[in-house]
């Protein structure tokens, strides 16, 4: 795979200059430092989860625990059914992805490559929602879902997931970049629009789709306030369950136990992300076709 990316902005030739070498070295150091700062919280959380309560609160806090207390994990599992909430999160995430990408994809394709009356108006109809602060319609939104009888069902996430102007914008921009000739020739060959969409537009947009899936995942993964309002008890996604059951104001669960739970919640997305990482690189080389 790597050999196909023969060069980027800099070529081998550039590295003969000392100044370029210096700047490049500085850049690498910067990236390394930034990477370290990104990793630090993870390490901190993990090590914190293995300390005793006392050690957790000593000042200055030792970096490594003096005893690696794996029992904290056992105790946290009795408190918190992590697999259940994790399953809920995945369920919400998969539904969101399917619904949002299907509806948004079709609409973006239509706006990019199909005949649509009043196209500008319709685009505006979608994109102007980007300008409206979510807090101003938080309550009506909630009452609206209640009105549809969607509260405490997964539909309350799946259907509104399609109403995402940001995704629509990104996808439409990407589709705009695909040559119209590709579709023209397919149409001449008698392909239906659905075939053009599924057979040409979708495969060509793999990189942006992967990005959207990732963005969608982090939204589902992060949101706690809204899902806590919409869902009850057993159907809560992980972040909301942690918020309402572990770190709610006034919680007396010990901090080392909290960190053990947090560490467990951090592992699955990291693994998932590592898995997707290959996908991204694969997708990117396809993306170069876009031109």
């Amino acid at each position: 795979m790597k050999n196909t990316r023969e060069r980027a902005i800099m070529s081998r030739y550039d590295f003969r200059k000392t100044s370029v070498k210096l700047v490049y070295g500085l850049m690498v150091i910067c990236i390394a430092l930034i990477s370290l700062s990104m990793l630090y919280p993870f390490v901190n959380t993990f090590l914190g989860s293995l300390k005793t309560t006392k050690e957790f609160f000593t000042f200055p806090t030792p970096f490594f625990p003096s005893n690696w207390l794996w029992e904290n994990y056992k105790e946290s599992l009795t408190l918190f059914n992590i697999t259940k909430y994790f399953k809920n999160t995945l369920f919400i995430f998969f539904g969101n992805t399917v619904f949002s990408l299907t509806f948004i994809g079709l609409a973006a394709y239509s706006l990019s490559h199909l005949r649509v009356p009043m196209k500008k108006w319709i685009t505006l109809y979608f994109l102007s929602t980007l300008l409206i602060p979510a807090a101003s319609y938080l309550i009506p939104n909630y009452l609206n879902l209640k009105g549809f009888g969607l509260l405490n069902t997964y539909w309350a996430f799946w259907l509104p997931a399609g109403a995402n102007a940001f995704f629509l914008l990104l996808l439409k921009n990407f589709f705009d970049g695909i040559h119209k000739e590709l579709f023209e020739s397919a149409r001449i060959d008698g392909a239906s629009e659905l075939r053009c969409f599924l057979g040409i537009a979708i495969p060509l947009s793999a990189p942006i789709l992967v990005t959207l899936v990732l963005l969608g995942f982090s939204t589902t993964w992060n949101d706690f306030y809204w899902s806590y309002l919409v869902m009850k008890e057993d159907k809560l996604p992980l972040a909301a369950a942690i918020y309402s059951k572990i770190i709610y104001p006034g919680s007396t669960i010990n901090w080392n136990i909290r960190f053990a739970i947090l560490t467990m919640t951090l592992i699955p997305p990291v693994v998932l992300f590592l898995f997707f990482q290959r996908f991204i690189i694969g997708g990117l080389s396809v993306g170069a076709v876009k031109g």
Binding site: L106, A107, S110, R115, V116, F126, L159, G162, A163, A165
Partner: peptide, 17 residues
């Protein structure tokens, strides 16, 4: 086709946004 592909999204935006 243009409208067929757009209508679900228009509806969703209307109802939920």
């Amino acid at each position: 086709w243009g409208l067929l592909f757009l209508i679900p999204e228009i509806l969703i935006f209307f109802l939920f946004l």
